[in-house]
Design a protein around this nucleic acid. Structure first.
Lengths: 240, 240
DNA sequence: CTTGGTAAAACTGTCGACACTTGTATCATG
DNA sequence: CATGATACAAGTGTCGACAGTTTTACCAAG
């Protein structure tokens, strides 16, 4: 709520386009639209019962979110994420979220602590993997909002869905909840909350960075090349 | 050149749209299109001699770059940047560029040092303010590219033009080259180069952060509220 | 001279159409 | 049976049009 910055009102443009974005995003992340699938405007337009114009805008938005890819011919495909992509995303998250944590620690309030505590409690009882990571992402979204920096928030939002796609990909390999050491995650979030509530920007930033880095430690699989699609790479990793 | 990440090929989409983006961007940054100006699709389409479709895509891109704002009615205006916006942008730059510097320091090569040295030399002899800041931005762009992280680069590019708009706004107030302590800037860039070439990620990141923070030190004008458009605020600042 | 209301102008969101390009299936040929 | 040319289907980039809504211009009334 930092005064002075016009709150970047969520562009009210794109009405039918927005619905298409949400539907396609969900399908891509859930895997219903597999990586590499072609996304043709006329086909999608027929599916949604709209004309090509809104579909076209939706595809532009999804490209911006990194979920689809334009080829030089103009064709659109669902993006295939590799392990290297995953590392890039996590690195970008560290950059954005550390800064956000640092600023959030300066405005931190009791309500914020309460929100995080509630979220963490829910995580420790989440029945499914997707529920667990939904809560996880929401916790981080809250911190980004509390940074008070609309730009930071916007930048983060533009990689958020790629991150969720990575999460979903690994979930499809892990499947069972037991694979995720939930206690470790919960403890890490508790430390993060402590750092934020301490009001020390430096500490908050450092804690956030190591929180994110730890959360991806399993990805240290170090296959020969990192160009494998994420799903496959994870399978080979878990099979060892 | 980190292998494994599809190099986010500059979307080949938007052909007429791309021209419109470049033209409008230039006009907005140069001030030919003043902050607050209305950008109506039919008008722009007539001006560019194209239909509304490419213009519409261009406006979406400019909104994403933060140069333009959609109102709830769907109308589009040139964004008015305030001092608070400027601080947000610099904070986001610190987040992204510190991380990039850290990674760039790990891949740093002699060619990179050579490029920076040449750039810095050119800066010390730049004849105009806009030439000086063009070089400045290009130096930072080079570092972002050398981070090897396509996502970091892309995020940076999506605030780059807002930053350039801020620079141009202050330039219009400063006007004369003498107002900018050029030696300080050049020295700061030399220290930055040294840190990058040292190969120490931590040092590079810290140096980048303080470089950016120092470069905006003059903005510590601290007017009563920070909601003033940047140009006006700068005028009142310099008038004291 | 201000104010309130109405008519005209302009703009946005969306649609269907067309030219040109790309991908694909078919078919004749070596 | 492989191969290369060829016709066909499908897709992209762009355009003009229309309905509904917002803004502006204008005029009457206080």
């Amino acid at each position: 709520m930092s005064a002075g910055t016009a709150p970047f009102p969520a562009p009210h443009r794109r009405n039918l386009a927005l619905e298409a974005v949400q539907s396609l995003r969900e399908q891509i992340i859930s895997g219903a639209l597999a990586p590499g699938s072609a996304l043709a405007e006329p086909t999608l337009a027929r599916q949604f019962g709209v004309s090509r114009a809104p579909v076209r805008e939706a595809l532009i938005e999804l490209e911006r979110e990194g979920l689809v890819q334009f080829e030089t011919t103009g064709r659109t495909r669902v993006r295939t994420l590799t392990e290297a992509d995953f590392r890039e995303i996590m690195e970008a998250r560290v950059a954005l979220e550390s800064m956000a944590a640092s600023r959030a620690a300066q405005h931190w309030g009791a309500e914020d602590s309460a929100y995080l505590m509630e979220n963490i409690a829910a995580q420790s009882q989440a029945p499914t993997l997707s529920e667990l990571s939904r809560l996880d992402v929401e916790l981080h979204a809250h911190i980004m909002e509390r940074s008070g920096n609309q730009r930071l928030l916007r930048l983060w939002q533009s990689i958020r869905w790629q991150f969720e796609m990575c999460l979903a990909l690994t979930h499809r390999v892990q499947k069972a909840l037991e694979c995720t050491p939930r206690d470790i995650t919960v403890n890490s979030h508790r430390r993060l909350l402590q750092a934020l509530a301490s009001g020390k920007p430096e500490l908050a930033a450092r804690t956030m960075a190591s929180h994110i880095e730890n959360s991806m430690e399993w990805s240290a699989s170090e296959t020969s090349t990192s160009e494998h699609p994420l799903g496959l790479a994870m399978e080979t990793f878990l099979r060892r």
